[in-house]
Design a protein around this nucleic acid. Structure first.
Lengths: 159, 159
DNA sequence: CAAAAGAAACACAAATTATCCGATTATAAA
DNA sequence: TTTATAATCGGATAATTTGTGTTTCTTTTG
């Protein structure tokens, strides 16, 4: 909404928190040579501005038994069914990401499953949704880059 | 590595922390009717086991000026170039995710850019990498499901 | 340019929270 | 049952966050 410009200090605070949300404000303060109170105020400001939307854990899904990742492109019979199909897709817990896209597919999603058999079940669930014409699956052999957050916002300054 | 079985309490702790990593252990303890010390040792145990890999902020990239998301499929001249190309791709800050995939593309990645012009620049950067034959872009019109973490691990129990 | 107003940072205090540890209870093995 | 092992508790202590008044810096305005 309102123009909210982050300065160098804000960026560095974000960097440290993106790396580990539980790093004490006192540590951030020490590193940036400011007071812990200032860190507190700035973080609060970024939260209020909606720039920091929340925080979450990074879990090892392999260890949790989910080592299978695939991307599934969805073709619809008709674009008007997009909303309905998305709602059904959202009910499938193993679909972790979904986009409405231009190009080849109407909807494009990412699934995370235990194994190929489980993935097949999930894909069939998507296929079975009313309005889905067919799907096309791409299996991930390796998740090489995961979620490059730090670089994303840092470079913001230059580019 | 070692068999590590999460029980109901672990799951509920994870649920609360996935939702907000800064929720006090004392709050978790109160809600689950256990002591704060127990929460502490259980979280530590999950960290040591590598199930909790870390924590990160969720930022509003729209507010930060990055409202453009696209998926880019990459065709290579030769599969043997995969590693090299991935390294080059990793150097582009706006590529936030990359997978080696089966099917149509050799590499599949997600980019986040400021606008179409900026996205074009990023895609051209990928195109210009040695060994990249051509790319195919899918533009996201809407990020409908973002990163459904809670459901993922909760359902683990049943399915 | 100087004065005044507004915003940001600081230092410190108070409140909250994490962490540690011995005692106790629960669970599993012999 | 007895013993060994692991988990939990509860409270003491250390660390951290959060609020407050004051000071410093910036910006605006006359």
């Amino acid at each position: 909404m309102s123009k909210f410009r982050l300065d160098e200090v804000d960026h560095q605070i974000l960097d440290m928190l993106i790396d580990n949300t539980r790093v004490p404000f006192t540590d951030i303060a020490k590193k940036l040579l400011i007071s812990a109170g200032t860190v507190h105020v700035r973080v609060k400001k970024m939260e209020d501005a909606g720039i920091i939307m929340g925080s979450s854990l990074t879990l090892d899904y392999e260890k949790l038994g989910y080592s299978f990742i695939a991307y599934v492109g969805v073709f619809l019979n008709n674009t008007s069914q997009t909303k309905f199909v998305l709602e059904r897709i959202n009910e499938i817990p193993f679909v972790t990401v979904a986009h409405v896209t231009t190009g080849k597919f109407n909807i494009f999603c990412k699934i995370r499953a235990k194994d190929t058999k489980h993935a097949k079940d999930v894909i069939f669930m998507i296929d079975d949704i009313d309005g889905v014409y067919r799907t096309e699956t791409m299996i991930s052999l390796e998740e090489s880059i995961n979620d490059k957050k730090r670089l994303m916002h840092t470079i913001f300054k230059n580019m």
